[in-house]
Design a protein around this nucleic acid. Structure first.
Lengths: 334, 334
DNA sequence: TTGTACGCGTTATCAT
DNA sequence: ATGATAACGCGTACAA
């Protein structure tokens, strides 16, 4: 900037005015300055700008696995909302480790990101004290965190589980089991509780059958075989998220067990599997969008009380929820 | 830092030394400083550090769609390599628009990112002049860019197409067609050229049949119907990437057309579709990793000539490449 | 309309 | 082993 000023025979302040389109510069001086800028290829150094202004126009997203479709959709949505509002997005993965997450958050705070969207790793009992101390706005997604009230975007887990169970019951299933993911995850626990509660509320026979993860195709194969061999065999399962659904589909295919299925999380090609998989869709794009908007509102000074937004889920009915006997082959029906 | 210095009765420089673990600080003064740091919750301001040192410890990744599994896997790999080496990753999407890409790159340069990993959008004839002028190291992924030699990581498109065609031919297919993506994409064009060349080299009958995108399920349904109604009907298609594979699978299912298929890009559940889909796998994780490593080497001063790394593809043989008649039902064979 | 002087928080240099 | 001071490049406040 000093170089430009010297070349154009003006002060740095005038250059600054031109670069930032501030008013109060005569047309011809502006043109002269612009010409010099283009000629010597000047580019403003945002680092210095940040140091001076205190805002970085940067937000960060912390998830556990960027390659998982659920998170990559959230990620795409957050990036989009950020970009539209002139924020850049730093994405970081904690790979599911609270320890790594702590380190990641610390380095993001050091960077003075203007805000954080975080899917808290594993068992996270409270808002990170480092973040709290820094005063950086933070929005949690998918899983809440205990302690002081914080903006949170979660999906309606009880509602989703309820829609899954009711759908199966409406299709004649009575012995329904839940294949949940690792109980370390809050979502997995919440879905389990909802399942047990709804199971009992509907007066389904026996105790609610639940198997929590982590699951492998092998372990699920065995589990399904066991359930289907009981004297009152399980006729349908609900899978707790896209990971479990995937493993369960493989296990079913391998063992040849035919069971009703409602999976949590929609996935591409769910309609091309035989039978087409009925799912509870969580709409991660909307969750990411909502979180980003809320975060940016906070950055811009919104001081209203912290809110928890519960996003509705949507049951996408395909075929896997029906009793095997009543499934129509699509080829026959088309 | 000044606050800490005052509290600990040392100079700011000594605090700086402690914070950065520089040698030359007596054990007891270090402890004293650390105590103050913890007490008042001091956190280094990386903005100032950046301004002083000129390096941001940040790299950026520019792709067109973070939610597409191909890019999200690249993204996860780049983030991982970056994080391990203490770099933060800014991800940005150009949404396929060269104009937006230009703006995105410019703001990243203004931020003084240390390096760029870019999947160039649409038709990009040359290295971006802004980037070139800034001297920021850049590595292109998936598609090369003309002009001065630049580090590039692409996959072996001719090899991938060849393996697909040869697999189909080995299974008795003779009338093979290509469903490519939009010819605007370099990869789509290269795969088309490879397909035509291999088609002719193998002496397959007639002219190579090719249909480039963008495709919709509707357009593909019609296209497949046309091809299957010809006097020498097409018996197998190769799809040019995961988007096209998806649409083609839906089109086949809808129209009931039975054709051999080899898809570009592996995808989850490819083995659960009936018939299981044979694919050319590109290993985006390795591509992202390779690109990140090469970029960081450049940042660290590697001055060797720009190199183009061609990653091998791998044909994952399942069932969709066989002639329909010879397909075994898995249930029968297990 | 334009310019001067200072400060943002850190690190590099050179002293002590 | 420690400290004083000058940068880094920009924006703010105020003056001209």
């Amino acid at each position: 900037m000093a170089d430009v000023a010297a070349e154009a025979h003006v002060s740095v302040k005038t250059v600054s005015r031109v670069v930032n389109r501030e008013p109060g510069v005569r047309r011809d001086t502006e043109l002269r300055v612009r010409a010099v800028i283009d000629r010597i290829g000047f580019m403003r150094h945002d680092g210095a700008r940040i140091l001076r202004q205190g805002r970085t126009q940067t937000i960060a997203l912390v998830v556990e696995d960027l390659a998982n479709p659920f998170y990559s959709q959230i990620s795409a949505a957050v990036e989009r909302e950020a970009r539209i509002r002139q924020y850049q997005l730093i994405t970081a993965s904690a790979e599911g480790s609270p320890t790594r997450e702590r380190g990641v958050l610390e380095s993001l705070i050091n960077r003075r990101v203007d805000g954080l969207v975080v899917v808290p790793a594993g068992e996270r009992p409270a808002v990170d004290p480092t973040v709290a101390a820094s005063g950086t706005p933070i929005v949690y997604v998918d899983r809440p965190v205990r302690g002081q009230a914080t903006d949170t975007v979660i999906s309606d887990n009880p509602g989703g589980v309820r829609s899954a169970v009711e759908h199966l019951v409406a299709n004649g299933h009575r012995r329904i089991a839940l294949l949940g993911d690792d109980a370390e995850f809050w979502t997995a626990r919440q879905r389990r509780e909802a399942f047990v509660q709804i199971h009992d509320a509907l007066g389904l026979p026996g105790d609610a059958k639940v198997s929590m993860g982590p699951h492998t195709v092998d372990s699920l194969t065995e589990r399904l075989a066991t359930w289907s061999r009981e004297r009152s065999p399980v006729t349908a399962v609900i899978t707790g998220n896209n990971r479990v659904t995937l493993a369960a589909l493989h296990a079913m295919r391998r063992s040849g067990v035919e069971m009703g299925l409602v999976g949590y999380d929609d996935f591409e090609l769910a309609d091309l599997i035989e039978p087409a998989v009925t799912v509870v869709n969580q709409d991660p794009t909307s969750m990411g969008q909502k979180a980003a908007l809320q975060l940016i509102a906070r950055i811009l000074g919104d001081e209203s009380p912290a809110q928890t937004v519960v996003m509705p889920t949507r049951l996408i009915v395909r075929e896997s929820g029906r009793l095997p006997a009543s499934r129509s082959l699509r080829k026959a029906s088309s």
